[in-house]
């Protein structure tokens, strides 16, 4: 099927999803609840892309949307980037202790969380339920209750006979990997990696030579200069 991703025309076999097509082309789409080897879920919404043109543009999750003949996809339009940041903000507000989320925030340039942090330990991505179901064939844990009472648990909150204690759920859980316990560990957003990725020229006293050869382009030098004045 001929599709067009970010202006690149490419022939993708039927049955592929937009995410797989983008990966094939080397276009990076951030994902969280998607995992190769597990079924697509479309729960975290981080992989949203814009499809269609003009009036008929709409946002879909690329991990669940199959390729269509002649479809036009934008994986990093302004709207897409903005909504991904918003989704990540909401996810971080739910679980600020997750390293996976904090890393994504640094990568995507999320520098503020405008929501009250809930400090929960689950973001309901469903990865553990799917790995238990599809890879470990145990079907021990699942979603329990509904709406704001939703949780992931074993039936009746008791030790399940189906569970073999393989640990697959913990292995795959993005919320179980705690973020580094640096000085900002009580903040909702640590952004330590984001800060360490800043150009090193900040410490350079005379910014005659940017390490990236981009004098004044990233704006860090001029920001520093204005601070000094």
């Amino acid at each position: 099927m001929n599709i067009k991703i970010d202006g690149i025309r490419v022939d993708i076999p039927e049955g592929f999803t937009l995410l797989e097509a983008a990966k094939f082309l080397g276009i990076e789409i951030p994902t969280l609840c998607w995992h190769e080897g597990l079924s697509a879920w479309g729960g975290c919404r981080l992989c949203v892309v814009e499809i269609g043109e003009g009036e008929r543009k709409k946002m879909v999750t690329s991990c669940t949307y199959p390729v269509e003949e002649g479809i036009v996809v934008h994986t990093a339009s302004e709207k897409v980037v903005k909504s991904r940041k918003m989704i990540l903000e909401l996810l971080i507000a739910q679980c600020p202790t997750s390293r996976t989320l904090q890393d994504l925030a640094s990568k995507m340039g999320v520098i503020q969380v405008r929501f009250d942090p809930k400090w929960e330990n689950c973001i309901y991505c469903g990865l553990c339920v799917r790995i238990c179901n599809e890879q470990m064939m145990a079907r021990a844990i699942g979603f329990v209750n509904r709406g704001n009472k939703l949780e992931i648990s074993t039936p009746f909150d008791k030790n399940s006979e189906d569970c073999r204690k393989c640990g697959g759920c913990i292995y795959i859980c993005p919320a179980c990997t705690l973020r580094c316990q640096g000085i900002n560990q009580d903040n909702v957003l640590c952004n330590a990696c984001y800060n360490s990725l800043q150009p090193t020229c900040i410490s350079n006293e005379d910014n005659y030579n940017c390490w990236m050869g981009l004098k004044n382009e990233c704006g860090t030098c001029s920001k520093e200069e204005s601070k000094n004045i």
């Binding site: 079907r139 021990a140 844990i141 699942g142 979603f143 329990v144 209750n145 509904r146 074993t154 039936p155 009746f156 399940s160 189906d162």
Partner: peptide, 18 residues
């Protein structure tokens, strides 16, 4: 089917009580 599936369905609906 697994108990997880039965429990998941039953806990989803408020009409069912344990």
């Amino acid at each position: 089917i697994t108990l997880r599936d039965v429990y998941g369905v039953a806990s989803f609906y408020k009409a069912f009580s344990f």
